[in-house]
Amino acid sequence: MSKLRAGLVGLGMMGRHHARVLSSLDGVDLVAVADTEGDRFGAVGGVPVLSSVDTLIEQGIDYCVVAVPTRFHLDVVLKLAEAGVHALVEKPLAHSSEAASRLVDIYDANGLIGGVGHIERYNAALQEARARIEAGDLGDIHQVATRRQGPFPGRIADVGVVKDLGTHDFDLTAWVTQQSYKSVSAQTAFKSGREHEDLVTVVGRLSEGTVATHQVNWLSPFKERTTVITGERGAFIADTLTADLTFYENGEVATTWDNVSRFRGVSEGNVTRFAFAKPEPLVVEHEVFRDSLLGKTSSIVTFQQGAQTLAVAEACIESSVREETVTVPVIPAGQS
C-alpha cells in the first residue's frame, strides 16, 4: 500500500518537532514543508522547503500539519479545506470560537478529517488515568485540580496563557472525566507588560457535578505540569513532565489515635506508582491521526472538541473581565 503524503506548515519550535516525527512515521512520507523564512534551523534535511501553503498543496499532499502562529490558522486551514486536504492543527484550533466553528463546519461539509494537537491526551500518565477511571478505580470523580506553570516562552506572541497553556488543562479535564464544562469563574493578571494575560486561576463546574480548578501562569521560575484527580476511592496524581501516575488510595485500616483521625478525615491507604509504557506523546498523536486517515479506529481530538475547548477558554477570559461566573456555550458538531 502506498504511503500517505504529508505536508507541514511552519518550522517554529513545535513545527520542528512535527518535522522530526513525520520524517520517521511508518506509512507516511513528508513530501514538503512550507515556511516563509525557510529551514533556518536545519530541521528537515533534504525535504523541499516552499514559501507558501499554495505551493505546498500543489505537491499533491493527503494531509497537512499546521504549526504556524494561532492567528494564521483560519486562513491556512481554509485553503487546505478548499483543496480537499485533511489537517492536524496545533492547539488552539483558531484565534476565536467563531473561527473554530467555521472550520468545524467546512471540514464536516467537505467530508474531511480535522484533528487538533492537544498533546496531553496522548501522555501515558493521563491515558492510564482515564483507563483506570473508566474501570471504576476511583469511583465517582469529585474534583480535578491542575497546575501548569513555568517561565514565559518567547515564541508565543498572539495569544495569552489561557488559550495557549490553559487549553491543555481544559481539554484533558473534559477528556479524562468524560464530562463537559458547564460554567467557569476566572481571574487573570497581566504582570509582564504584554497585551495578553500571563496568569489565570479558574474554578469550573463540569456536567456531572465535578469541580475543576486550574492554576496556570507564565511567571514561575520552574516548570510544573500536575493533574490531581480526586474520587470517592482515592486520588490519582499525574505528572505529565515525567508521565508518572501515582494512586493514593483511601485507607481501610481504622486510625485509633483520635487526634490524628480527626485531623486527617479520610484515612491514608496504600500509595502506588504505576508502571506502564511511556511512548513519546507527539509520536502517539501522529500515529492516531494517521490511523484515522486510514479508516482505523482511533481517538483523535476532533475539530469540534478543539472548538469546545476554545469556548471554555473564551468563557474564562469573559469571566475575568465581567468578574462573574460565565456559562460555557456548547459548540455544535458540523452542519452538513
Rank of each mutant, 00 (worst) to 15 (best):
M1F: 11
A6T: 03
A6H: 02
L8Y: 05
L8M: 10
M14S: 15
S23Q: 08
L25Y: 07
D26S: 12
V28W: 14
D29V: 02
V33W: 00
A34N: 02
T36A: 04
G38P: 02
V44H: 01
V49W: 01
D54F: 02
I57E: 07
Q59N: 04
G60P: 05
Y63T: 11
V65H: 10
T70F: 05
R71I: 13
K79P: 00
L80C: 07
A81P: 03
E82T: 12
V85Q: 00
H86N: 15
E98Y: 09
V104C: 12
D105K: 08
D108L: 10
I113V: 15
V116K: 14
E128Y: 03
A129M: 01
R132C: 13
G136W: 00
G139M: 11
D140S: 11
V161C: 04
V161W: 05
V162T: 11
H168C: 10
D169V: 11
F170G: 13
V176A: 10
T177A: 10
S180F: 11
V184Q: 08
T188W: 01
S192I: 10
R194S: 09
H196A: 13
G209H: 06
T210E: 00
R225N: 13
V228Q: 04
A235R: 15
A238K: 01
D239R: 02
T246W: 01
E252Y: 14
V253H: 05
A254S: 05
T255V: 15
T256L: 11
D258M: 13
A277R: 08
K278W: 05
E280A: 15
V284N: 11
H286T: 00
H286F: 12
L293C: 09
T297E: 09
S299Y: 09
Q304I: 04
Q304P: 08
A307E: 04
L310Q: 11
A315I: 01
S320F: 11
V321H: 13
E323W: 02
E324P: 10
T327N: 10
I331V: 12
